[in-house]
Write a protein that binds this DNA or RNA. Structure first.
Length: 228
DNA sequence: CAGATCACCTGCTTGC
DNA sequence: TGCAAGCAGGTGATCT
């Protein structure tokens, strides 16, 4: 949960805050780096009440930044530079261009869905958005990446961007407890086309959405609209 | 390299 | 009614 020396944060100024895939990275005035991951249920909240799930607190000039995390999958790391395993992740899902995305996928023989979840292949995509993007592109989650045509991979790249953009605009997906820094829930869960909709009608063909396991992860898709 | 399996953790749902 | 089992999922270790 915590790596590094929290005492080294005393008196530091946060020079920059940026996103690196699913990681939140803060550059400090000392030159060191504070890297956070919210895991499944992590929240960063400013000046809110502490709860039983408050795992860390950062005292700021403006108040207090709290790290809340029910399931404790979140991580906080203080280090001299961005940790190597984080720096080595694949290109960002919202920054990679279609040609690079397709070319990288063409060399991989794994199923497309676990590949999308592999942060060393592409950083920033999680289970909900992988399912939604594959539906948007009409690609079966078990399709072999390298066997997909370049045009279908480009379509998938486009679907990933669209899915993430729309989700960000809607403030994210609040399935159980996600909230933003102001404690506000997102609404994208109301627009999910397949995720969490097992048995419900496909918005495109009306057939039932199916739920299967792919690489041990719950996977939602339309067997009629999504082809290998 | 690919993928299976397990572990971490706790609130919630399901089933008996 | 009550309790146990199962499930959710991001990362990471370990094994085949």
């Amino acid at each position: 949960m915590l790596r590094g020396d929290p005492a080294s944060l005393a008196g530091q100024t946060i020079r920059e805050v940026r996103r690196h895939g699913k990681f939140i990275v803060m550059e400090l005035s000392s030159g060191s780096t504070l890297t956070l991951h919210l895991g499944m249920t992590g929240k960063l909240l400013v000046n809110s009440d502490r709860t039983a799930y408050t795992r860390a607190g950062f005292r700021l000039d403006q108040g207090e930044l709290l790290f809340e995390d029910i399931r404790t999958f979140g991580r906080i790391e203080i280090s001299a530079a961005l940790p190597e395993r984080v720096a080595a992740l694949g290109p960002d899902a919202l920054q990679v261009d279609a040609s690079e995305f397709a070319a990288r996928a063409k060399t991989r023989r794994s199923a497309i869905k676990p590949l999308l979840l592999n942060q060393r292949f592409l950083r920033g995509l999680g289970n909900i958005y992988a399912d939604e993007a594959l539906f948007g592109a009409g690609i079966h989650p078990r399709a072999t990446a390298s066997r997909l045509s370049l045009s279908r991979l480009r379509r998938l790249h486009d679907a990933i961007r669209q899915t993430l953009r729309q989700a960000i605009d809607a403030g994210g997906s609040s399935i159980s407890d996600y909230v933003d820094a102001d404690g506000v829930r997102g609404s994208f869960q109301e627009r999910h086309q397949v995720y969490g909709r097992e048995g419900a009608p496909c918005p495109r063909c009306g057939g039932p959405i199916r739920r299967i396991l792919v690489a041990q992860r719950g996977t939602h898709f339309c067997p009629r609209c999504q082809k290998r």
